[in-house]
Design a protein around this nucleic acid. Structure first.
Lengths: 204, 204
DNA sequence: CTTGAACTATGACATATATCACTGTTTTAA
DNA sequence: TTAAAACAGTGATATATGTCATAGTTCAAG
């Protein structure tokens, strides 16, 4: 019996997935989380064989969950279940240790198969992402660091350098440098363009 | 027995919803459509007691389906099942004759209840939309002028004051003043926050 | 005909932003 | 154990941004 933690914010989708999965005799969804924060808590309290993780959630995102798992050295395998082939986010998720991802418009059999593969230690990648990685000459140097993502998140809240410095407990100069880096890496001209890009490309 | 047509593009969500609904003895999903075009075809071929319609679909959207139904005078009641409280689209849908809408993060009981209500001819509206309709003419005094909207649009493209000045054939100082006004009227602190607000509240 | 609103513009000013060069510390991977 | 990166910081500098006071033009409404 494979015990799953299902993190998905939309109630109807969450219930629907739980029911579908449990049609397969080997799978059981022992707990559900309706946001990232709840997911992190459940991971602290219980053991699971696998985490089925939606990316876009309120409170804490899937990325936040993966970061928390990394921090607390939680080795439970993670399968991303996502609506969008949102390449940047997926790349980040894979870099943060996710074992694979599957789209919500996949067939049920694929999902079940993916879960079982991840459970026995295999990776599950869809062709699109691999293509993206190959074609887009994916340059690791151009990837934002975790800290930079944190700063970008603050930027997208409309915070000034000073406010970000206070929020993240840094000097304003440090934040200035991070912002400068973000602007350079995103290949934009100023913070406003960075925020626009972040919103449009779902980087946050 | 209430015979339902379920139009929803994401396979896993579609299957999940079908299973959930059929847990209720009164409901049966006789057909599913994975996009708007398929939905329109099925409506031509079969009779249903109710249509459960996702808004964002490839091929044809939910709006397209409602327009087609209007055109062919198909009177099957429609319940919108949507992820986003995307007020403008929902208003359009209701004007096109949808009987109600429910969010994907509603409880299963609410969905079933909504379906039954719609089936017996009632309307199903969530509070948020009503609030939105009321708040439309809320801060008329703080409305942006046409010119200010133009400038805001430029801001949202990430243009600098100088670039906006060139685009709109004004001096940089004039644009600075407009930006200042926009910032004041939107009650934000700088251009970045103005852009964020513009995007979030669909001001552009 | 006058008033007010929108639009245009300038100059002055304070502050915020972005870049650069340089210096460390810590963490991670080879 | 090195070498790399990420991370934190300082100081200098140039430019962009936002605010204010002030003022002229146009145009529609009273």
């Amino acid at each position: 019996m494979i015990e799953c933690l299902l993190a998905e914010d939309q109630t109807l989708v969450r219930l629907g997935l739980k029911n579908l999965l449990e049609l397969d005799g080997e799978l059981v969804v022992t707990h559900c989380a309706e946001n990232g924060a709840a997911c992190i808590e459940l991971l602290e309290q219980y053991q699971f064989d696998i985490v089925l993780l939606d990316m876009r959630m309120p409170e804490k995102t899937g990325i936040d969950v993966l970061q928390a798992m990394k921090k607390y050295k939680n080795k439970t395998p993670v399968l991303i279940i996502t609506t969008f082939e949102d390449c940047d986010v997926l790349v980040r998720a894979m870099n943060l240790g996710a074992r694979g991802y599957i789209l919500k418009n996949a067939e049920l059999e694929c999902l079940v198969e993916a879960i079982k593969k991840v459970h026995i230690g295999q990776q599950v990648l869809q062709p699109t992402l691999t293509q993206y990685l190959l074609s887009q000459n994916y340059d690791k140097a151009e990837q934002l660091t975790d800290k930079e993502y944190e700063v970008l998140k603050c930027l997208s809240l409309g915070l000034s350098n000073k406010a970000i410095a206070e929020t993240l407990n840094n000097s304003e100069g440090t934040i200035r440098n991070h912002v400068s880096q973000i602007i350079a890496k995103l290949n934009v001209k100023d913070r406003t363009q960075a925020v626009i890009k972040a919103i449009n490309e779902h980087l946050i």
